[in-house]
Amino acid sequence: MSVAETSIPRPSLGRLFWVFLVMGATSIGGGVVAYLRTGLVVRQRWLDDVTFVELLSISQTLPGLNATNMSILVGDRLRGGMGALVATLGMCLPGASLMIAAGFLYGAGGDGPWSKAFLHGIAAGAVGLILVVLVQLGAKTLKTFADYVFVAATAVAVAFFKVPVPYALIAAGIIAIWWHRPRDKDVP
């Protein structure tokens, strides 16, 4: 661990579960990261901003959703393996219960014309939401012209030429990582 190992707080597992459960139940409308920062850095003071950003960058690089990856990393940091488990369960429980209920309701008549019209509307709205996520992710990630080429090549291959995602991921990933490879001049 990076700075001041001794100053890491040790909340009880029950408290950890509760705090993540509340965040898991209230973070409506995506943007879980903002709720996590408010909850963990501002309210509980379990993390400082530097650590938060460091853990977030790990979450974003690894596969898995930001919300669950952050729960695992923060839970592990505060209370080890059990901490990671209860934090993740707390984060997932409310949304998972709701979506299980949604699955049953949908099966029991969700394909009526009115609910179809509503769902078709929110699907169009969700496309707008994804575009915003895309622009924000892009503004943070894409620095050079080559990065935009990697984005376009990956998207076109997958969306239009039906290249299976793992092939696209491995091929474009290796080329992009090689493009950004450490050069000798980078070493002081």
Binding site: Q60, T61, G138, F150, V151, G173, A176, I177, W178, W179
Partner: peptide, 8 residues
Amino acid sequence: GLGSVAVG
């Protein structure tokens, strides 16, 4: 590198 592929 993975960042730009992820955006793609």
